[in-house]
Simulated scan of single mutants.
Amino acid sequence: MLTGKLVRLRALETSDADSLYRWIHDDEVGRWMTGSYPRSLDQVRKRCEERQVNTYEHVVLGIESVASGALIGVTDLRDAEPETGRAELDIYIGEPDHWDGGYGTEALRLMCRYGFTMMRLHLIALWVVAENERARHVYRKVGFAEDGRHRECFRGSDGKYHDMYLMSLLEGELID
C-alpha cells in the first residue's frame, strides 16, 4: 500500500539527517516552506534520533525513490483527530532532480490513500502558497479543491507576504 511504481513511503531513519539538513538549507527547496532558525547538522541529527514514534495524530514518512533507494522527500499527516476524521498534510520533494516525473504526485496519492484507508480519515487539508503553481497543479491533479484564500499570511524568504490557499480532499475524491 505504501509502495508505488516510483516511490516508497517509509519511516524516517536517523541516517536521513544529512539529506534533511541539506534540504532545509537549500533556498530553492525551502522557498515555499515555513522558515525556521538555522540548525547545525548535529542539531538535525539529534532531532532525528529523538523523533517521536509515528502516531495517529502525527505520521511522518520519508519519500524514497524505488529505483535508487535514496530518500528524495518527506510527507506527513498531522493534527489528525479520530473524532472529526480530519488531518493536515505536508509534503515536499527535497531532491530537485525528482521535481518532475511524477514522484511528488505518486507520493501524495500514496499518503492520501493511507490517510483514508488506514487512518479512516474523511478529509485531508493542506495550505499552499498562491504562487507555488507547481504544487497547486499536483494537488488539483489528485483531486484537491481550493476552499479559500488567506491573504498575505505567508512571509517568504524574499521578505514579501504571500497569499495562501486552503485546499482539501474528501474521502472518495482521490483521483488515480
Rank of each mutant, 00 (worst) to 15 (best):
M111E: 08
S157C: 11
R136P: 08
L174F: 06
R47G: 13
R120H: 14
G115S: 04
D163R: 02
E50K: 02
W32P: 00
H162Y: 10
N54M: 12
E131N: 09
E173C: 08
Y56E: 04
W32K: 02
G115Q: 00
S40I: 10
G172N: 04
R8T: 14
D79S: 12
H162L: 09
M167V: 01
L174V: 06
V29L: 07
E171K: 08
V59A: 07
G85H: 04
G172L: 08
M118R: 11
T117W: 01
E95H: 02
H58F: 12
H58E: 09
Y165Q: 00
F116K: 10
P38A: 06
M111S: 13
M164A: 12
M119G: 04
E88F: 13
L123V: 14
A80S: 03
C153W: 06
G102C: 05
R39G: 07
R155K: 11
M1R: 13
L20I: 15
T117V: 14
N54G: 02
S36C: 08
H137C: 14
R51K: 09
D97Y: 07
K141L: 15
L41A: 15
E133G: 02
M1N: 14
E146M: 12
T3L: 07
L41C: 09
M1Y: 14
G85A: 10
Y92S: 00
G156P: 01
N54F: 12
L123E: 14
G156Y: 09
V138C: 15
Q43R: 03
L9F: 06
H122K: 07
R8L: 15
C153T: 13
H98Y: 14
E57D: 13
M167K: 05
A80E: 10
F144G: 03
G30L: 14
E49Q: 11
V7H: 02
N132D: 04
V138Q: 14
E106F: 01
T117P: 00
S40W: 08
L9A: 02
H162V: 11
L89Y: 05
Y103I: 01
Y114H: 07
F116Y: 06
A125I: 12
D76Q: 07
H25I: 11
S19I: 14
D163W: 01
T117Y: 02
Y92M: 00
V7F: 02
A70S: 10
R109P: 05
R155D: 04
R120N: 15
W127Y: 09
W23E: 08
D100I: 06
R113M: 05
L9T: 04
I93A: 02
D147C: 08
G115K: 00
L110V: 11
V74C: 03
R136K: 11
G73S: 05
G104L: 03
Y103F: 08
R78W: 09
H98P: 04
V29N: 01
I93Q: 01
G73K: 03
W99D: 00
R120G: 15
E171D: 09
